[in-house]
Write a protein that binds this DNA or RNA. Structure first.
Lengths: 253, 253
DNA sequence: TCAGATAAGTGCGATTCCGCACATACGCTC
DNA sequence: GAGCGTATGTGCGGAATCGCACTTATCTGA
């Protein structure tokens, strides 16, 4: 596990489905006061989520919520014609199912797993029952929801104003930040859905980044080989989003 | 005042700066229970906001929050180079300053007034002090914040995937919904900032809509003359956002 | 080892949008 | 009503992207 950015890395053990203790990497869980942790404890189920597993489907009733430990999830707006655009990324710093905390039953967004992930899952009815007893948890999820919302507004502008190559570089950096290694399981088709563009546009852009020595890729895998150079190719949006999160993390009443 | 969509239209009087009673059109205020209304009462200041007045500047500390009665506000993501994209609209159904309720001091978004507006303004420190005594208000603002966030994700996809003409039509419909009359004070330059495109692209698109008999416009003013036809020219996003809001309004635990 | 499935490379015409510039038209003020 | 500031119309070449289709490469499993 990598650094946890200012939050205690002291992991605690929770029981997994298979009876083995698992390490919690999720930063929201790690930061909970002991009594809230104790309250949640028995309701969390450790799960492994496969690549492209759909955690929430757009418009459908949400049945589970997830605290990711490893891997990451993509939040997508899906159009009636099937086209999609990514509007947010959720890793171990966050929570999948923010709308639940505001008493909504459905969400218009799809959330899919990128890279195999591990998470603690909780049933929505259970979570609703426990939330009143966990004010810190509720507040943390709410704040994360707003952080995610702000990220989506920046991505909205980025997707409107910047070209594919810049956005691809930006996207790779954002994912790289939340994944252990330098190699990520990605197809160009998938990247097209994230960036809201054609696969062939991704192909051209990826080819340019590869020739420039920033990345290499083979069928279904992208490896970042020169991150600083990749950061130069990305638009400012990457840094803007980073800075925003840092600012907001620091801001408390 | 128009219909208030399922919320009691019984207006209540609040003292204005000039001592005269003003009518509250803001739906959140109207739906408050009497005791919360009483708590807020004396802290609200009736204000008139001029066209293009900046209610919140991106990145700056928020000093006031606003409950709009008439007119509307645009929420914008602003890029370092000055380009901008609209990511949300706030009218009398909402609240300007949602981040405050989650204990954030700043917001990365600019909120500007479109069409002259009237609002109840409250100082941020005062609001923070009163919120613990107003759980219904807090919950309502939080839910509105999420609704706005979901709207922004749909706009993100729309701005990425649809062309200027469709987006312009969509935008005019959305604004028309929240403004009393059919004529709106809009320049093409302003519309370009909303849609994240060049003024001249707006000029071309507006010209097409005018020739098709949907709108007319003169220097700084746009009038909608055939709304149904305009709705046909807009992308599905208009209807999708409408439906989402209706769904979410109905959803309570 | 071969067949089928899936991923990636490439080409092409059409379209949209870009940045920029300049001309024109409108409305306000003196 | 003359002049000025601002809004709008329009044109141009170029760049990015689109939609589509076809080829090539790679992986997988029978």
């Amino acid at each position: 596990m990598t650094k946890t950015r200012g939050v205690s890395t002291k992991a605690f053990a929770l029981p997994g489905k298979d009876g083995h203790a698992k390490e919690a990497g999720n930063l929201i869980l790690l930061a909970l006061p002991p009594q809230e942790h104790a309250t949640l404890f028995s309701s969390l189920e450790f799960v492994r989520l496969n690549l492209h597993h759909v955690m929430h489907e757009a418009g459908e009733v949400m049945r589970s919520a997830y605290f990711l430990n490893t891997g990451l999830g993509s939040v997508l707006t899906v159009m009636p014609d099937g086209k999609s655009v990514e509007v947010g990324l959720i890793g171990k710093e966050g929570f999948v199912g923010t709308a639940i905390v505001f008493d909504f039953k459905t969400s218009p967004l799809r959330v899919v797993v990128q890279a195999d992930a591990t998470a603690y899952r909780v049933d929505v009815p259970t979570l609703r029952k426990l939330l009143p007893e966990c004010p810190v948890l509720e507040k943390q999820i709410q704040r994360f929801a707003m952080t995610l919302a702000m990220e989506s507004t920046q991505l909205a502008a980025c997707n409107r104003l910047h070209d594919v190559e810049e956005r691809l570089a930006r996207w790779l950096l954002m994912s790289h930040d939340r994944i252990g290694g330098d190699t990520m399981p990605l197809t160009q088709e998938f990247l097209g859905q994230m960036l809201g563009t054609r696969r062939s546009s991704v192909s051209m852009a990826a080819s340019i980044l590869q020739k420039a020595g920033m990345i290499t890729y083979t069928r279904g895998n992208v490896t970042i080989v020169n991150r600083p150079k990749l950061a130069e190719a990305a638009c400012d949006c990457y840094q803007i989003i980073q800075d925003q999160k840092i600012n907001w993390q620091a801001e408390t009443r």
